[in-house]
């Protein structure tokens, strides 16, 4: 088992209805859930819905939370990812009926890349990754989970996670080749 869960005390206070703990846990976890949803779904209103729903499930789970069973952050990431996959499935079903317009491939060649343009290109490259590779990069690079935590969230071995990460990052390097230094 990992070291002491840093969220444990807070989630127990949330279960007791402590308003200050609710605020503290929201401030700590909601931005993380929103970021995760944005990495998986893109910067869409759906990402906000997913982040909110994940937090509501946390509120429901709080009274039933058993300390020591799992890290709260890991559990919350699993919940968030499940919600993301629900949305992705729905999106694909809709896309099969009516293919969406092609996204902007990037800035026009006659203007330089600004920070926002770079961010957009990265977002697009992330969205183009296969789901599991995108998930691995989102959890390890962006959400800063350890390989053990990320593998647990994804339900894969550490070796499988490493393979997903390598393939994902390699694909990103190719997609962003014109911007990667060296």
């Amino acid at each position: 088992m990992d070291a002491q869960d840093p969220d444990e005390a807070l989630i127990l206070r949330v279960a007791a209805g402590d308003a200050a703990a609710v605020r503290a846990l929201t401030a700590r976890k909601l931005p993380r859930m929103l970021a995760l949803a944005q990495r998986m779904l893109g910067e869409t209103p759906e990402a906000e819905d997913v982040a909110q729903e994940a937090m509501i499930r946390a509120w429901r789970q709080a009274p039933k939370w058993r300390p020591g069973a799992a890290k709260f952050d890991t559990w919350l990431h699993r919940v968030g990812l499940n919600l993301c996959y629900d949305r992705l499935r729905r999106k694909r079903e809709i896309a099969m009926d009516s293919p969406p317009d092609r996204a902007d491939e990037g800035p026009a060649p006659d203007r330089g890349l600004e920070a926002a343009d770079v961010g957009r290109r990265v977002a697009q490259a992330m969205q183009a990754l296969p789901d599991r590779q995108r998930e691995a990069v989102a959890l390890c690079h962006y959400q800063d989970l350890t390989n053990i935590e990320a593998a647990a969230v994804m339900g894969v071995s550490i070796e499988a996670l490493e393979s997903l990460l390598s393939r994902g990052r390699r694909a990103l390097r190719v997609a962003l080749a014109d911007m990667v230094a060296s």
Binding site: T26, L30, P31, L34, I56, A115, V118, G119
Partner: peptide
Amino acid sequence: LDSWRPAVVSHALMESVIAQAP
């Protein structure tokens, strides 16, 4: 990869989540 910064949480979203807490 770090140049893609996620959008910040809006005040409305934050308050909506808090309002639904136990």
